[in-house]
């Protein structure tokens, strides 16, 4: 790591002001992405504003939502009783991510902002990376491809968004509360991430210095069943090859409500709107599940090395739906 100025922030407004005003400044929360990328030489801020002392920690139930302070750790959120009971797939996704050590450090706000795991992005000795430097090219497209995205890709970037918990959160229409120099605003997670297009370096709608202060999770109806299924080579401690977050409401064998999102396949956490349309009103069973999977992956643009992910993602979604509906 290069040298930098360390600032311990005590007030959110001031923290936002410092980073907004200084192009060389960055926030430091759990550190599991920021410091990792600084060690790799991918990021080299001149100033780090440590926000971990800001009063943005804690989980509050307010009516039909849970409001999660942005600095709440993944382990803390996973341990929340309301999360465990009402949206168990959020807990499943949290516990499927990283290791306990990292989950004790990583914050929910930081998790949503985690950077791509692409090894071409993470290695500055590779010159061509549009995410690091716009217009420099993409070494990943012609490189080793197994971990790359198949949905939402562009000719300029195929890097995957690797968050697990963002997958059920985007299925739930979670809201991101932020603070910028203009005050606070609320952005739906479904509109938070930006696909790479020809600006892969711009990953979300946050403005410079804008800080996530909380994530609000709307609670689905009590009868909703949820499941998060993660498929990977190792049994633990690995990013997803594919994953599926599903929440359904059933009336007998009829699906009356469905929320579906996929991980491991998209340049952004992938809300499967078309699958939801297929499932809503459908009868529980392999036919509907297969159709939901087919429409979701219809737009996939795999590389030779990621071709397997198309079918794997379909089967992952089908299995998740079978599990959550108890289908035979």
């Amino acid at each position: 790591m290069g040298p930098f100025t360390y600032v311990r922030a005590v007030d959110p407004v001031e923290a936002v002001g410092v980073v907004s005003a200084d192009p060389g400044a960055a926030f430091l929360a759990g550190g599991t992405t920021q410091l990792d990328l600084m060690k790799d030489g991918v990021l080299s801020p001149e100033k780090l504003v440590d926000i971990t002392r800001l009063p943005l920690r804690g989980i509050a139930r307010t009516g039909t939502t849970i409001r999660v302070g942005a600095l709440t750790t993944m382990e803390e959120l996973a341990a929340d009783p309301t999360v465990a009971v009402r949206v168990p797939f959020v807990r499943e996704a949290l516990l499927a991510g990283a290791s306990v050590q990292l989950r004790n450090m990583a914050t929910i706000g930081g998790n949503l902002l985690q950077r791509a795991r692409c090894r071409y992005f993470r290695d500055p000795s590779v010159a061509a990376c549009n995410k690091r430097e716009r217009g420099s090219g993409c070494a990943a497209i012609d490189g080793v491809q197994r971990m790359h995205a198949i949905l939402g890709t562009s000719p300029h970037c195929v890097a995957l968004h690797a968050s697990d918990v963002a997958v059920p959160l985007i299925a739930l229409d979670a809201l991101v509360h932020t603070r910028g120099t203009d005050g606070t605003r609320t952005v739906p997670l479904t509109g938070f991430y930006l696909p790479p297009g020809d600006t892969p370096d711009v990953e979300n709608v946050l403005r410079r210095g804008e800080l996530i202060t909380a994530v609000e999770i709307p609670l689905p109806a009590e009868r909703t069943r949820t499941h998060y299924l993660k498929v990977r080579d190792r049994a633990s401690y690995e990013f997803a090859l594919t994953s599926a977050a599903v929440a359904v409401e059933l009336d007998g064998t009829t699906i009356t409500g469905a929320r579906v999102a996929l991980g491991g396949v998209g340049t952004v956490p992938w809300r499967a709107w078309d699958a939801e349309d297929v499932l809503r009103g459908a009868t529980v069973g392999r036919d509907a599940f297969r159709e939901a999977a087919e429409v979701t992956l219809a737009g996939a643009r795999p590389l030779p090395g990621t071709a397997f992910k198309v079918e794997l993602a379909k089967r992952t979604l089908i299995r998740a739906l079978e599990t959550v509906t108890g289908a035979p």
């Binding site: 550190g31 410091l35 990792d36 050590q101």
Partner: peptide, 28 residues
Amino acid sequence: DQGACGACTVLVDGKRVVACLMLVAQCD
């Protein structure tokens, strides 16, 4: 030194973390 192996696991306020991805400055 990349938060991936756990060899530097220590407890901070009783919770296990990896010391390679934490600044001393954050330990105040």
